[in-house]
């Protein structure tokens, strides 16, 4: 899948085990004092066949809704699709970039196929957030982060190990460069594997699990609203020293 970030405003970051590269806006293009790093990881495995267009629509709606946030200028958003058909299980649609620079109409409709590399998606989200967040903090920017892993299945084929995920979680907690980090595992059409997802959430140190229900247009619209509201809450919490408190318990 082609990356959408080919401009000079983006920078490549190749650090990390397993070749989990990512991109982010160049620091000299960032003028604010603080940023919330947002990652949305969307399942593109074979089991999403049949509601892939709705998933793409949900993603576009969520990102477009984030633009209405009063702190939209302080959000850098990254989107990845994950499936075992990609090297390292992840395809970056675009790296951390200002909302104003994102063209959601260019988001490709997922092309379902492959198995579920949940560890890869989580590791990529965590690792990129840690690396980019650290570098932002080194440049005096205040940083917090939130990421969403939206999946309909349990882990079954990753390059990254659970230990790698745990190490990144530990790094996020101990480095103190991120003011706070919220991670949300969202199950969609995931009733049959909810127990496995719950276990994955606990083992990977993900802070929340949310069941979005069946993949109906109504539920996906609610999921888009949940994502944008959570991003808004976390962004408004930046500078307070803690995470946002008002993330809805139910989608």
């Amino acid at each position: 899948m082609p990356r959408l970030d080919q401009s000079n405003d983006m920078q490549n970051f190749n650090a990390g085990r397993g070749g989990f590269a990512f991109t982010g806006a160049r620091f000299d293009k960032l003028g604010s004092t603080d940023y919330t790093l947002v990652t949305i990881a969307v399942d593109e495995t074979g089991s999403t066949l049949g509601f892939e267009r709705e998933l793409a629509k949900m993603l576009r709606t969520a990102v477009d809704a984030c633009r209405k946030n009063p702190r939209s200028d302080n959000i850098l958003l990254r989107v990845i699709y994950f499936s075992s058909k990609y090297k390292d299980g992840v395809s970056e649609i675009h790296g951390f970039k200002p909302l104003a620079d994102i063209d959601t109409s260019a988001y490709p409709v997922p092309s379902p196929g492959g198995l579920t590399p949940l560890c890869d998606a989580t590791y990529s989200s965590l690792h990129a957030t840690n690396v980019y967040g650290q570098q932002l903090a080194d440049q005096d920017f205040g940083v917090n982060a939130i990421f969403f892993i939206i999946t309909d299945g349990a882990e079954n084929d990753s390059t990254a190990t659970m230990q790698m995920v745990k190490t990144e979680q530990e790094r996020a907690r101990t480095s103190e460069q991120l003011e706070s980090l919220i991670s949300i595992l969202v199950g969609i059409n995931a009733k049959p594997c909810q127990a496995a997802l719950d276990q994955f959430k606990d083992e990977a140190g993900i802070t929340h699990y949310r069941d979005a229900g069946d993949a109906t247009p109504r539920n996906l619209a609610k999921l888009a609203a949940f994502v944008s509201a959570s991003v808004s809450s976390q962004s408004q919490a930046l500078g307070t020293g803690g995470p946002s408190q008002n993330i809805a318990a139910v989608i």
Binding site: L30, S32, T33, Q139, D140, F141
Partner: peptide
């Protein structure tokens, strides 16, 4: 550390 935008504020 960086001189873009609000460099003194940061």
């Amino acid at each position: 550390k960086s001189v873009g935008g609000l460099f003194a504020k940061r």
